[in-house]
Design a protein around this nucleic acid. Structure first.
Length: 264
DNA sequence: ATAATATGGTGAT
DNA sequence: TCACCCTATTATC
């Protein structure tokens, strides 16, 4: 589930579990033995989420984690469970533990390394002082499709395939609209909507983009089946207009959209 | 038991 | 544009 909301939620949860504690690190799987040894025994000062990246600050060094497509954290209070499967990194304190599996990136960074990553990221809608203007600068000069641009982490950091599809649907915008054809007001609306959705995603720890009246059962909370408008709903009727939801690969991922609600 | 699939990104071509 | 990374879960036989 790693889009930006997951990353920010993890930062919050891990912060509650590990911050200001002495952290012991190990790599049962064996692929992060050296890095774990470098950081083990240090005190965690804080965790900074940015887009889909996590930076755990240990003095002048950082643990940089990018979950990629498969990465997952598990965590808990008390002593850690027996290691099962491929645990790339286990961090333990006196009172808590976290395990990392399958991450694309798990490495030790210094300030320079961290700055280099941040330098190539666009504004993150989940960060309070995110500068939407920077994203607009890129977007309104580009002939690339908005569905492509939203997946580009140097344009906006933290949006993934689900939010791409859902935000475009909610804005009534065709994914194939060139960036330079998107009206400024539309972009501003989309940005605000993205922030709202992603903040709700952090809180709920999952992505819900439908409003109650568009759900199968308009009362109560969204179920797994009705939490999205178009994502993974190819061939099913659009929740708003009944048109079959379409799919096509764009930016190397399956895109979903309603051709009626999001006309070209 | 085996295969297909996934919310991501990089680097080669 | 494509292969590849890497793991867990879900679907299919």
């Amino acid at each position: 589930m790693p889009e930006g909301h997951t990353i920010h939620r993890l930062a919050r949860d891990h912060s509650a579990l590990l911050r200001h504690s002495t952290v012991t690190m190990a790599s049962p799987q064996g692929r992060f033995v050296e890095g774990a040894a470098r950081l083990s025994g240090r005190t965690l000062d804080g965790i900074e989420p940015y887009g889909k990246h996590l930076f755990y600050a240990f003095g002048d060094l950082f643990l940089h984690v990018h979950l990629g497509l498969y990465g997952k954290w598990t965590a808990g209070l008390g002593p850690p469970p027996d290691v099962r499967g491929q645990v790339r990194l286990r961090m333990t304190t006196d009172s808590a533990w976290v395990d990392l599996r399958g991450a694309t990136a798990c490495e030790v960074y210094d300030r320079k390394d961290k700055a280099a990553v941040l330098a190539r990221l666009g504004p993150d809608p989940l960060r309070p002082r995110a500068d939407a203007e920077k994203a607009w600068d890129r977007l309104h000069r580009s002939r690339s499709a908005i569905g492509q641009l939203l997946m580009d982490q140097s344009v906006v950091a933290g949006i993934g395939n689900v939010y791409r599809a859902e935000v475009l649907f909610r804005s009534g915008l065709s994914p194939f609209t060139p960036g330079n054809a998107v009206p400024r007001a539309t972009w501003e609306g989309m940005w605000v909507d993205t922030r709202v959705l992603m903040r709700a995603g952090v809180k709920a720890n999952r992505i819900v983009t439908t409003v109650p009246e568009d759900r199968d059962r308009p009362t109560g909370r969204a179920t797994r089946a009705d939490s999205h408008y178009v994502y993974r709903r190819a061939g099913l009727p659009c929740r708003r207009c009944g048109t079959e939801v379409r799919t096509q690969v764009l930016a190397a991922r399956n895109l979903f959209w309603c051709p009626t609600c999001q006309p070209a």
